[in-house]
């Protein structure tokens, strides 16, 4: 569905992307993780044909990006990280613009607003929506023409946990419908929850790529099992048969409160590789 090979991009003298390579297969949710300023939005712009690149090869919808036709672009839906809605217009009027562009009947607008949880807010001006509702409206616009490939640039940035969860559900629903989703985020929990594959981007370079759980396991140097006992005590055990026996005994005594493994999360992995936090400001 998407293939990037050695993609490079510079602005003036500053290299923003340095030889980016990855591929995304149909139906996958691909997460691009990185702190602000890592080059995530630049990469989205390149993959969607909004920005030219200096070197490498970009395939989107199985076609070279330069060869995408208007019809191909109809199969793409993009949600940018900021604004993108007409604040003075109502939710319904916002969507009517795109219904006109894509030749979709107005009757579908109510349906799509219901789907994203904005049923009843059709007439409400976009400026009066909460941040979470605005994000849903932007998603409604993206979903309206049923794209096959969806780009979401920080879709949950700045949202409360409830709104975030609602957006996650919508994204997972789209995956079930067979859509391929390219997601940028600096929220590692979000990436781990939603993505089939993630790439960690730092200063224009992919420093790690793979399945979130595989990446975490790869950096699990400690290989320890941590037990929390009912007494409040914590025990660290190694990955071996002796530990298995010990755990068995403790469980028989009913003294085990919780068992954890020592593998790091994506945030820790990123910090270890780059020395930077994912959520730090550029």
């Amino acid at each position: 569905m998407i293939k990037c090979k050695n993609v490079a991009k510079s602005f003036d003298d500053k290299a923003v992307l340095k030889g980016i390579s990855f591929d995304i297969t149909e139906g996958q949710i691909f997460g691009l993780l990185g702190p602000s300023g890592a080059g995530k939005t630049t990469l989205i712009k390149i993959l969607t044909g909004q920005l030219s690149f200096d070197g490498g090869e970009v395939i989107t919808l199985d076609k070279e990006i330069e060869k995408l036709t208007g019809e191909d672009k109809r199969k793409i839906g993009i949600m940018m990280d900021q604004f993108g809605v007409y604040e003075r217009l109502s939710c319904s009027d916002n969507l009517k613009i795109y219904a006109d562009i894509y030749g979709i009947q107005y009757s579908k607008i109510k349906e799509i607003l219901q789907y994203v949880g904005l049923g009843g807010a059709e007439k409400r001006s976009a400026s009066k929506l909460s941040k979470g509702m605005e994000a849903r409206l932007r998603l409604a616009r993206v979903f309206m023409h049923s794209p096959k490939l969806i780009f979401l640039d920080e879709p949950t940035s700045g949202l409360d946990p409830k709104s975030m969860q609602a957006i996650h559900k919508l994204i997972l629903d789209k995956k079930k419908d067979g859509c391929t989703i390219f997601l940028t985020t600096h929220n590692m929990e979000e990436a781990a929850k939603l993505c089939d594959k993630v790439a960690l981007l730092n200063e224009g370079e992919i420093v790690e790529i793979g399945k979130p759980s595989d990446i975490c396991l790869k950096y699990n140097y400690k290989k320890k099992i941590i037990l929390r006992l009912t007494s409040g005590e914590e025990m660290e055990l190694s990955h071996d048969a002796t530990s298995a026996k010990k755990i068995y005994e403790l469980m028989q005594e009913n003294t085990v409160e919780a068992i954890h493994s020592s593998e790091p999360n994506l945030e820790t992995v990123f910090l270890e590789i780059t020395g930077r936090k994912l959520q730090e400001e550029a």
């Binding site: 940018m80 604004f83 993108g84 809605v85 007409y86 613009i97 795109y98």
Partner: peptide, 13 residues
């Protein structure tokens, strides 16, 4: 400024 133009252009306007 509000990115609406970018969204329109991406919708093939």
């Amino acid at each position: 400024e509000k990115n609406t133009l970018r969204v329109l252009l991406m919708a093939n306007i």
